[in-house]
Design a protein around this nucleic acid. Structure first.
Lengths: 345, 345
DNA sequence: CTGAAAGCGCTTACAG
DNA sequence: CTGAAAGCGCTTACAG
């Protein structure tokens, strides 16, 4: 048995007593090849014995595809925020890809990197398709990729771009959260968004908030609407502003768990009890949400499912099947911070 | 300008009026090639104009290496725990690799997957080397990889294996945390480990705890030592046990922020004030540590640095340079939960 | 049912 | 200083 050198199809062919053609046909389960059971058995046995794996580069070269998909991870102002979802997203994505024999390349892009690097991923034969997370509408690379007919799936929506995407249903999620507060009897319900209004997700979650209030016949006061900026510090500041509003709101929908963490902190500092004096609902359902003080009622964002859906979408695109954008459904996780759940995580 | 078809070195050669050899020599900055400035300029110009990127598979095939490193991410009982560090680790790793033109393949391994898949990564030419996270000492794949001389770097130590690794200095970190509590005047200091004693990191952090106490002339009571199990629930349970101990400890070192989150929760439930009635120090410095109630004093684990160091180690190994294991230094981040920091995050 | 041969797109000795 | 040619390890028509 060879120790260092990897086995080639030639070695397998020799050991099995057949040609390299036959080895390839058997190992790839070629559909139209009529090969005897006995021959197949011998080839598989030889491959196993030699620990033979077809060389990826050789196969890529001849097949004209890499069976690899790249996740393009733009570093930007919201990267810490998205980082929380990266593990789930990556593992869901990998799961979809591996099921079809595809590999996953992870490619973070620093702000100062030239546009070329994304193009190179596709044109240099590093990946057959790109999953792009944190896309920007104005990004010229996106247009260039479309022009070169590179298969692309976006993680997060970009209005005005006809590219397939996966995302959660932000509007429905926010609406669900606020409806829950309304059902608990709250009328003065404020919002702290997850991000500044330039961000699509922030606008959509704000829209869900407005929709829920409108259905209840409530017009939110302008002071009820505060903008978060991805992190805990922004939530603390926004909550401090909210505490000044007269009459004080009795509930807040915070459209991000991280921002909500800062908001809870501000309430604790101010001696305002949650949920008695102020009910709080978050968005994301990070693992920590079950252990905030008190535990946070929140809207679950299924990171793994998003990754899996993105992978499926890409595989469909790569196989020429219709690739339709996915807006994944959300779910409200009721804990103690809204006043209707239990205090036990 | 071609739209769909990617340019090949042939296209570049024709446009620049030279041979494909010259194109390759120029674009790769071949050291011994004496080529006129004018020719170089023409080649670069043609490559730029055609958006030419050498085909990765073709290059891999001829060079006999992929310029790709795979991160092997074993899913196991501690995966949620390690997931918290994945974004930092990945991005640090990618940063080290990209600086040298290497790509990063992400490969999660599910528990039921056969051992072959890790071997295939190397023998099938998917990667030149493997970074293995969450390695197990008994893993037969590890031995096989060594036997086949596959370059491997471990994330986390495995005693008895002569493979290069990167890790934090768990002993020093724990010792530092406990020394801080001693300096604040605490004598009855308990510990909740990050994991069960089978885990190397749990044993090392416990050792740091013992070392610090010994230096202060204190012998810990057996009841002071509780084992966490990666998650918040285990921290809550361990803290509840600790609250029964008489006389009650005045401080706890919780060797994981996630576990500490559960411990803080148990203290809140029991009406025990932090830090007045019980000082708490964590380990990891997750982003949320600054916003627990009260903010958590903790030992920082530099995830990005660990990834970067792992990448560097691998590159050294791949270039035949000495690859020496790295134990990264730690740092104590003082906040409010220990009683000596400020309450402002 | 199986084999000999071409070719995927590069890099690299080797000639000139 | 530059070009013609071999070869990396596969897959796939094409013969037989």
């Amino acid at each position: 048995m060879p120790r260092k050198r990897r086995a080639s199809s030639f070695d397998v062919a020799r050991l099995a007593g057949v040609s390299r053609t036959t080895v390839s046909l058997v190992l790839n389960n070629a559909p139209h090849a009529h090969i005897s059971e006995e021959t197949r058995r011998r080839v598989w046995e030889a491959a196993r014995k030699l620990q033979y794996f077809p060389h990826a580069a050789a196969r890529s070269l001849v097949e004209g595809r890499t069976r690899t998909v790249a996740l393009v991870w733009h570093r930007g102002p919201d990267v810490n925020y998205r980082d929380v979802f990266l593990p789930g997203l990556l593992q869901g994505l990998a799961s979809a890809l591996h099921a079809q024999g595809y590999s996953l390349l992870f490619r973070p892009i620093e702000p100062q990197e030239p546009d070329d690097v994304v193009l190179e991923l596709a044109l240099g034969g590093y990946a057959d398709g790109l999953i792009i997370s944190g896309p920007k509408a104005e990004d010229p690379v996106l247009a260039e990729l479309v022009r070169r007919e590179v298969p692309v799936v976006l993680h997060g929506q970009v209005p005005g771009l006809a590219l397939p995407y996966v995302d959660v249903d932000n509007v429905a999620g926010a609406k669900r959260a606020v409806s829950h507060l309304l059902r608990l009897g709250h009328r003065r319900i404020a919002i702290i968004t997850n991000a500044r209004p330039e961000y699509v997700s922030a606008r959509q979650r704000l829209e869900g908030y407005r929709l829920a209030l409108r259905e209840a016949g409530i017009t939110p006061l302008p002071q009820w609407i505060q903008y978060g900026d991805f992190d805990e510090a922004s939530g603390r500041k926004a909550m401090q502003a909210l505490l000044e509003v007269q009459p004080r709101p009795t509930a807040v929908f915070v459209a991000s768990d991280l921002v909500a963490l800062g908001a809870l902190y501000a309430l604790w500092e101010a001696g305002v009890r949650v949920p008695q004096d102020m009910a709080v609902v978050g968005f994301d359902d990070l693992p920590l949400a079950a252990y905030t003080i008190p535990p946070l009622t929140t809207v679950r964002v299924p990171a793994w499912d998003l990754g899996f859906a993105a992978g499926q979408l890409m595989l469909h695109r790569l196989q020429g099947r219709p690739a339709v954008s996915q807006r994944l459904p959300i779910e409200l996780v009721v804990r103690a911070s809204c006043g209707s759940g239990s205090n036990t995580p």
